[in-house]
């Protein structure tokens, strides 16, 4: 599965480690919340780059205080219908100020790219290489935002009332 960062195929140097798997030496690792909690001290000692993988039911608040340790947060979508990850992503970015990589993993189809993008995800585990183009096209397919979210778009409530000069900038 190719990794997309901002709509471009990117090299994935991260190693996702299962809870029972041995930790690799000298690689950036992604561990579950449970493993992070259990082995946090030794992980911090031994690894320069740590990523965490949240399940749909894991809330942003649970890792809010640990965010300085993470360079990557992966949020799992068990199915397309499970929308909890969108709230988790927005809270991590907007409330807890997380600015590292925010990666959507699991059941990801290109039709949810616009939602992911507006909620602050900058990376996805895509299905195939064509999804890179799909990301670039679909995040702008609807370029009107009726509401503020976690991207840099101005919502219509604001945009409609900008002085013309400012709007043209």
């Amino acid at each position: 599965m190719p990794l997309l960062r901002n709509g471009h195929i990117a090299l994935d140097q991260w190693v996702a480690v299962g809870d029972d798997e041995a930790l690799p030496e000298d690689a950036p690792i992604i561990v579950s919340l449970a493993r992070w909690r259990a082995e946090r001290g030794s992980l911090v000692d031994e690894y320069r780059q740590i990523g965490i993988r949240l399940k749909g039911g894991d809330n942003a608040e649970e890792i809010a205080n640990d965010l300085p340790y993470f360079d990557l947060v992966a949020i799992e979508f068990a199915s397309i219908a499970d929308g909890r990850g969108y709230s988790t992503a927005r809270l991590l970015r907007d409330r807890y100020g997380y600015s590292g990589e925010l990666r959507a993993v699991g059941h990801i189809i290109r039709d949810i790219f616009p939602f992911l993008h507006r909620c602050g995800f900058d990376a996805v585990e895509a299905r195939n290489d064509r999804d890179a183009k799909a990301w670039r096209e679909s995040v702008g397919a609807i370029n009107v935002a009726y509401q503020p979210a976690t991207d840099n778009r101005l919502p219509t409530t604001v945009l409609r009332h900008l002085p013309l000069a400012a709007a043209a900038e």
Partner: peptide, 9 residues
């Protein structure tokens, strides 16, 4: 509520 990205699912 229209196309609210957080509440689509």
């Amino acid at each position: 509520s229209t196309l609210h990205p957080e509440f689509a699912f």
